[in-house]
Design a protein around this nucleic acid. Structure first.
Lengths: 197, 197, 197, 197
DNA sequence: AACTAACCGAGACGGTACGTCTCGTCTTATG
DNA sequence: CATAAGACGAGACGTACCGTCTCGGTTAGTT
């Protein structure tokens, strides 16, 4: 059991080589996590994945496309679920999202957002993803609404957007560190509003 | 009276030449507006401003610093002021901000945000700017709080952050077009919360 | 059959493209001949050769390396050969060298010498070249020595160095115009020494 | 004896300030000696001399002019003198010149030569200096010739040129280290020529 | 069994931008 | 009016990536 050879990954015929795809996505994710968007370049990914640049360009037409693939591949955050206690559900959702981002997932997502500001394809992808998230979060709130735990005239998707936009803001300004009381204060604000009395 | 000569802007002694500063900031703003962040480079700014690159680097240590200066310079949106009617003040603040961004200011600010995701210097600059904005908005809300128009246990800066993060989210996903009723619905959500009854 | 297109020289795979090499060396030679060392810059060569700067740096580690390559490439002066008449051989060698330099080769070589005074890499390259020349010239004199036409206790390489150093001196002070009698006088001096009687 | 103040050298009225001149020439010489021509720039000289760049440009129109001034200022090599023994005089001349150059003077002179290859003013100055040297050396040889120690049909200035060109060649290729026997061999070659028998 | 087609890695190509350096000119404030 | 200081437009430096191209080699399907 020596394993000294480097087999040099090569073609497997007229088809995409999944080993290369895997190596490229892994390398891209690792670079993003380690050096952030500044360190992320097609050259760097090719170097680290021991892949040829044309192999990358063949399958991902742009930096943004690769970025999005990396993001989708590692996305593991569970959609918000209504358990009978909205406030608790919102807090858990927020806590889990920030924690996931802090563990590394955030580096990828913030890169996608940044890339979307200059690249229309990435912008479209980000818009689609954000819409999907709003719907998911909105669905949970709608459920709570049906159960009478949320005001009937509230717009579930708007509430979802308020939640996620707050999280984005923290991600984009490097302020993901929220203690549980801070999260509670935020959720309470969202929950109770600011109207006096 | 021909005025055909180009006098070639030059030094005015051991001090910053405001003409150069002006030319550089104007060029930078024009490039951003015309070509977006992708077209924005120090080279391009220098070329357009007919300035030397070192002149730019002398006064703006990073691309992000220049970007932020451009943003500050053109920022003409009035700071949030408490007029006795919080709900109206929040709506006006939101309406004006989105409108200003739609008129062109947004292109600059989204560039700043994007740049901050890869460049630590830009990140610091953006963080500072965001903190300042939270304080300003928070001050307005605190005033309203003192007047009894906002719940005494609300955190003014947190409310400010909820407002601005919502606006950021719209900017970053190209959804600045909000009708007045939509803005009203958002402000009401913020105001009344979602707690039933 | 118009042939108006410019095919834009490109890569031919993982190997040096001789067309690029040719274009770069030609451009470098032309710039040197037209504008002298002052006009010679990697930027200028790249511009004229329609090549990228990295392509030049990939193959020539320094300005001096490129300079020397240009010199070698255009060098067409025949090496000194012993034909049975040393004095005639020395005169022909000198005449041909000066004539070659006057025809344009000198501009390149004096640039190499100048560059070598400030750049260690160029200095090393020039030292190597000079040593090689001493050996070549020395070999010719050694041949004549074997034939009894040169004093047996003379040092052939030293004689070679005396010859070339005299030529260098003329080149570096713009005094390449030597008539045949002047060259003859010089060779006679070298040949007969200055000892009286 | 503290000497803590920095008096900041300043104008002494409508005339050249000799302190500045001195500081500039010293700085230039030091830079040349320490870093060679590569480190020599007007900027560097101004920095080291704590002088303004315009002050330098006012008095020395070009890099070459400053270089030449530095050279003339430190030139201390004695002109060749005929003492009754030509061979000894030539050896002493050569020994002293190489030794002077090795002690630091060579760095300046080789810079002048290099500069002369691109700058016409420097070229003219160098040509003039070289001619002057040829005359001086020639005068010594002519004296020896009158005394019967040198062949009457030898051209004194040509001999002088042979001597100095050999020294230049050694300077320009970093080969100033000649032992006494090597110098003797060279002078003998010059003296006896290469004609057999 | 030979051929083709598409893949693979490698790396060179023409470019653009980077951030730094020096150039030679200019204007200021100081004496 | 000379000086130290230092800003200015200009442009070269050497490096990093960009996205494209060609190469030589590999393998899977098709003839």
């Amino acid at each position: 059991m020596t394993e000294p050879r480097k087999p040099r990954r090569t073609s497997i015929g007229s088809q995409r080589n999944p080993e290369s795809e895997e190596a490229i996505l892994s390398a891209a994710a690792a670079i993003l996590r380690e050096g952030g968007l500044g360190a992320f370049s097609i050259e760097a990914v090719a170097r680290r994945a021991k892949a040829g640049k044309p192999t990358i360009y063949r399958w991902w037409p742009s930096k943004a496309a690769l970025l999005l693939d990396v993001y989708h591949r590692q996305k593991e955050v569970s959609p918000p679920v209504y358990t009978g206690n909205v406030r608790g559900d919102l807090m858990r959702f927020m806590t889990e999202l920030l924690s996931y981002w802090k563990r590394g997932g955030g580096a990828v997502f913030r890169s996608v957002i940044a890339e979307a500001q200059g690249d229309p394809a990435a912008a479209a992808a980000l818009a689609g993803y954000a819409a999907e998230r709003r719907i998911h979060t909105g669905a949970m709130i709608r459920e709570a609404q049906a159960a009478g735990q949320v005001r009937p005239d509230a717009d579930p998707e708007l509430i979802g957007e308020m939640l996620s936009s707050f999280a984005w803001s923290r991600l984009l300004t490097n302020r993901l560190d929220m203690s549980e009381p801070e999260i509670a204060a935020y959720v309470d604000s969202l929950f109770d509003g600011i109207r006096p009395g």
